[in-house]
Design a protein around this nucleic acid. Structure first.
Lengths: 239, 239
DNA sequence: GTCGCTCGGTGACGGCAATCACTCCGGCAC
DNA sequence: GTGCCGGAGTGATTGCCGTCACCGAGCGAC
C-alpha cells in the first residue's frame, strides 16, 4: 500500500505483524480492540514536531515505524538531544499520566507512522486494562533506565572523547553490523546532532572523529562509520 | 514508640497517617491489606546501602521516613549523586519491573524506615491490583521527569555556577523557609556531596559559594544557607 | 551555468575549571 | 594537653574545549 511518504501504513494494530516483539503491541485481543478504537493513525513527514517541551499534555504517541528525536532546549537556544526513539516506543506517557507539561520535545527524524491517543482515552484505557498499565510501567521503566544512562554519560565523563566513545559503543550494540574489518554503523545524524547528543559543539565532534580516524580507531565514509578497534574505544571510555 | 535509631516506627501501612498525601500509600483497603502482608518493615541507620548499581533486582524499597541518596559511579571512583529521595518514594521499581540490574545505588542519608517488597511479591501485587499499577506508573513518571531535569541541568548548563544556582533554586522550591532576610535552607550535605550532585569538584563548589557570598547573593552559617537575592540567582541560571 | 544553503574540516585564541598542594579549623579520642 | 581526621578555604598551574573565523564540497533550485 503506497502512502504519501513512501512508507507502509498499518491501519490495524491487531493485524500488525510487528506486534509480537514490541512492548505495547502484544496484548490480549480485547485490549488491542479497545486500542484500535481510541487511536488515531497518521503518517508524518520528516521534521514534524509532535509536541513541545512545556506544552500541556494532549495525549501519547505510539511510534509504529520511523524514528523521532526527543530534545530539550535552554533559553538561549542550545539544544540537547535526550534520546532517539525507535519504533515501538511510546512518547509523552509520563507527562500524560501525571497531567504535567511535556518534559521534552519530540520531532520525527524520518517519515514515521504514529498512533495518537487522547489523554482521557489513554487514562481510561490504562485503568480498565491492567495489562496495558503493566506495559506502560515497563515502557516508563525503560525510559527511566535510558535516562539514567544519559545522566551517567553526561555527569561522570570527564572528557568529551569519552562521551563520544560511549555513544559510538552504544550504537555498536544497538544496530552495529559486524564485518571482517570491524563494526559498521549507519549514522543518520549530522555532526551538529551528534554534538547535541553529548552536550558539546559541532567543531569538537569533527575534531574528535578526525582524532579517532588518525588513531585508526574508526573509519568514516559518508554517513557510515566503521569501528575498527572496539577495544581501544572501550579503553578510552573506561579510563 | 522509641526505636533503635530514635525515629518513630510505623508498622501498619493502613494506620499510617502520612497515607493521605503520598503516592504509594493511599490505596483501597484491600490493596493496603495485601501490601501489609507482603512488606518487610525495617529501620536502617545512616549510611546503609540498600542496593548497588549493577546488582540483580531483589525487590523494591518504599521510603517511609528519612532520606536516601541515589548514586552512580564511574570505574575510577568518581561518584555522581543522581537524586536525593524523600519519604514516600519507591526505590528500585524500574529494575524490579524489568528484571534488569539496578541502574543506581541507594544509601540512606539519615536513619530511615523502609518497607521492602520482594520482586515476585511486588510483580504479583501489581498484576492483581490495577490501582497499585497505576500508582507505580505515576511514581515512574515522576522519576523519569526528575531524571529529565537532571539531564537538562547537566547537559545544557555551560558554567558550573549555573548548575549550582539551579540546585539552590530547586532546594528553595522544595524545602525553603521564607524569612524576612531571604529563603533559608538547611543543607545537610558536605561540599563534596554537593559537588557530586552537579558533576564538579569540591574546590569548585567552595569557590562558587564564596563567590556568591562576595556578591551578597547568599549567606552561609554552618549548615544553613540563606538565599538573599533569589532574582540574581535566577538571572545567573537563565543566562 | 549561478546562487542558496547545509554540512564538514581546520586554525587561533582565551577562559573556565580540574588538579595539585598546601593551610586552617573544629571535633573527637585518649 | 597532643594527635588525628574530615571538612572547608585558597593559590598556582595546566589543558581541554568553546568560540570565532574562514574555506571547500556537495546539492538542489531556478
Amino acid at each position: 500500500m503506497p502512502s504519501p511518504y513512501n512508507i507502509e501504513i498499518q491501519n490495524s494494530c491487531t493485524a500488525c505483524e510487528r506486534g509480537q516483539v514490541e512492548l505495547f503491541c502484544n496484548m490480549s485481543p480485547e485490549a488491542m480492540k479497545t486500542l484500535n478504537a481510541i487511536k488515531f493513525t497518521s503518517v508524518y513527514p520528516k521534521g514534524s514536531v509532535l509536541f513541545v517541551d512545556g506544552e500541556e499534555p494532549r495525549g501519547v504517541f505510539i511510534l509504529c515505524s520511523g524514528r523521532a528525536k526527543l530534545t530539550t532546549s535552554s533559553t538561549e537556544g542550545r539544544t540537547l538531544i535526550v534520546k532517539i526513539a525507535e519504533a515501538g516506543e511510546v512518547l509523552g506517557a509520563s507527562a500524560t499520566i501525571l497531567g504535567r507539561a511535556y518534559e521534552v520535545s519530540a520531532e520525527t527524524l524520518e517519515p514515521s507512522q504514529l498512533n495518537f491517543i487522547k489523554r482521557d482515552d489513554f487514562l481510561r484505557f490504562l485503568n480498565s486494562h491492567p495489562e496495558a498499565c503493566m506495559h506502560t510501567a515497563q515502557q516508563l521503566s525503560e525510559k527511566y533506565q535510558s535516562a539514567q544512562r544519559e545522566i551517567r554519560s553526561l555527569g561522570l565523563a570527564q572528557s568529551t572523547a569519552e562521551k563520544l566513545g560511549k555513544l559510538l559503543l552504544e550504537w555498536c550494540a544497538l544496530h552495529g553490523e559486524t564485518t571482517p574489518k570491524g563494526i559498521r554503523l549507519k549514522v543518520l545524524l549530522t555532526h551538529e546532532e551528534i554534538a547535541q547528543m553529548i552536550g558539546t559543539t559541532r567543531e569538537t565532534v569533527t575534531r574528535l572523529l578526525s582524532d579517532f580516524k588518525r588513531k585508526k580507531i574508526v573509519e568514516v565514509k559518508g554517513s557510515t562509520i566503521v569501528v575498527l578497534r572496539k577495544e581501544e574505544l572501550e579503553r578510552i571510555v573506561s579510563i
